[in-house]
């Protein structure tokens, strides 16, 4: 598999949200607007790239019996780094995303890629896998956020295109489930059409 393929497969064929269906909590919880979704995606991507690269570096040193706790410590360390950076430089985004930033630790995408990819591949390939999966996750979150923001408040990325009150339900909790559900239906329809 060449380098470009690794990146691309994370975006479409192994899309973490629509195909692998991993990391549902932040997907539903933080996508109230396009910018929040993108921010959450970027934070997850940063952790994913760093942890994939480091785990790939140390994979031969760690005894296989204690590898999962070791991976979790590495991931948790990077989550703490990202958390502190966001608190310092992006305090507003940090407040909106709230508890979901420390919860990146238990995002199954990250441990899944550590175990499934980084533990078997070289440093560069693992980092690129992190870029691909991270981009796929960020893209999905941004799309979900954009749809919810468009219906809920008539704007995308804060750019208002219909003024007045939107359908508030899309920004509230039920909207998260509904939008993700219907987007998945759309994704299934499109991929089924591409296959046939």
């Amino acid at each position: 598999m060449n380098k470009l393929q690794i990146v691309l497969s994370g975006i479409v064929r192994n899309n973490p949200t629509f195909v692998l269906m991993l990391g549902m909590c932040p997907t539903l919880g933080t996508t109230t607007s396009a910018i929040n979704g993108a921010g959450m995606g970027a934070a997850t991507m940063a952790v994913l790239i760093l942890s994939n690269a480091v785990i790939s570096l140390v994979k031969n040193i760690i005894p296989s019996k204690v590898r999962i706790p070791a991976y979790i410590v590495i991931i948790a360390a990077f989550v703490t780094v990202v958390e502190l950076c966001m608190r310092a430089y992006l305090p507003d985004l940090y407040r909106t995303l709230g508890v979901f930033i420390p919860l990146i630790v238990v995002n199954c995408i990250i441990l899944g890629r550590a175990e499934g990819f980084a533990a078997k591949n070289g440093v560069l390939a693992s980092a690129l896998d992190g870029v691909g999966i991270g981009l796929g996750f960020t893209l999905s979150l941004t799309v979900i956020g954009a749809v919810r923001e468009a219906f809920g408040s008539g704007s995308v990325f804060g750019q208002i295109f219909i003024s007045g009150d939107g359908m508030l339900i899309f920004v509230l909790a039920p909207g998260a489930f509904l939008v993700l559900g219907y987007l998945m239906v759309l994704f299934n329809k499109l991929t089924a059409k591409m296959k046939s």
């Binding site: 039920p174 489930f177 559900g181 998945m184 299934n188 329809k189």
Partner: peptide
Amino acid sequence: QAFRGTPIALITAG
């Protein structure tokens, strides 16, 4: 067909 599995579960949860 397109709704089977997770999508319909998510809509129900909504």
